[in-house]
Design a protein around this nucleic acid. Structure first.
Lengths: 218, 218
DNA sequence: AAATGATCTTCAGGTTGGCTTTAGGTGACC
DNA sequence: GGTCACCTAAAGCCAACCTGAAGATCATTT
């Protein structure tokens, strides 16, 4: 058994003893998959992971609107450092080698604290997105969106006014392993227009033929 | 010393302790002045300010193209609400009374996130190109361009005043493997003139016979 | 387990609009 | 006046896009 796996087992055992229910993933992609499919109280993340490093995983989760508290385990002497961990959306970090007790204490603190403060809303004209609540409204009117619709709109809204390509939308709103028909983006664009534009007599979600889509404030 | 000022001093002290350099303005107009004259990492704004309220200040900054992250402090029980803060271009808000730790955490998050992207655009006289949005305007007038038209104009604008040869334009705006009629460049030049010059009675897109084309500011 | 309802995905037909080619016209330069 | 480079209107083509509907998947309820 490798070093990493032994550490994982150790951590798992310890946490279980503390009353945590623990799932373990041995590489980044599995981790991302599990994190998106389930809801956890806290995520412990090693920086050095096969197939997708901790930073990338962390960023991806945050981009996807997942604000589960994340504890990053960094190698003290590596090229990586704590600042980078925090920049990528981690809530706390711990340099290896760390004491067991310290890890547990910090995890308990993280869980108690409930992670970082809620992410800020995104506003595009009178359209407001609340990623924490997965809610959306135009002016005073609440708009019901499905999770996928929200993800697509979110990706567009974060870059309001800019053209976002179809493949970028695919990358951000769909699982990285998705390899279906890209036409699905068009389907969702169509659905979004029916919800955020048509009822209000607007056209803020524009097609830029051959380039992508653009969400405009006006 | 008034309540507001004491709060300001408190916040200033705390932020200074966290390594922020802090300037304080005690009314809206001073604040606007300072914000436009200097560059800040983040702006903390009270809704209730003498001489110009927080919402107005926020809007004014955004209109002026200043995208510094803004944290709005709102009075929870007032007639104002958070939605309005976000609608006016704030990046985050905090209802009074708030915990100090929370304010700091949110500010750190805001700073880390670096606010919104600063728009990069190319300007040639009164012609403005925004590559991120694939948008173009002359003065106040929006000009609709197709992606290819934009690509050609972009190549010319990046070297405004210089002669750009037909083959350079081909290389930049067309696929590497394109081997069609080079006449296509002329076709696009023609289309561009019809859009960016003719309607405005200008002749900024000049032919340099035997050499290429030149886009002029005058 | 079965049924329901919501959401996600695939599919296919229809439409549009941008890219490219063509070809006749215009103007510059010798 | 002839030649050559360039201009531009028009039209065909094709990929990109839209959208309604049906099938697949998932979660929740009965």
């Amino acid at each position: 058994m490798e070093d990493e796996e032994r550490l994982a087992e150790l951590v798992k055992g310890g946490l279980a003893g503390e009353g945590f229910a623990v799932d373990v993933a041995h590489d980044g992609r599995d981790g991302l998959w599990m994190a998106t499919e389930n809801t956890y109280d806290v995520i412990v993340l090693d920086v050095m992971l096969p197939r997708m490093n901790g930073y990338a995983l962390c960023s991806r989760l945050r981009e996807a609107g997942d604000w589960t508290p994340i504890m990053m385990l960094t190698a003290k002497d590596g090229i990586y450092d704590e600042a980078e961990a925090l920049d990528n959306g981690a809530d706390d970090y711990l340099a290896k080698p760390f004491s067991y007790v310290v890890l547990l204490a910090r995890l308990r603190a993280l869980v108690r604290r409930g992670g970082r403060e809620r992410p800020v809303s995104i506003t595009v004209g009178d359209l407001v997105l609340d990623p924490a609540a997965l809610k959306c409204r135009r002016g005073e009117a609440e708009i019901a969106l499905t999770p996928k619709e929200f993800a697509v709109l979110h990706a567009l809204a974060r870059r309001a006014g800019e053209v976002v390509s179809k493949s970028e939308l695919l990358a951000q709103a769909w699982d990285f392993s998705y390899d279906g028909d890209p036409n699905i983006v068009e389907v969702y664009i169509s659905a979004l227009r029916r919800k955020i534009d048509v009822p209000f007599g607007r056209t803020t979600l524009m097609t830029v033929r051959g380039a992508g889509y653009r969400l405009e404030a006006a």
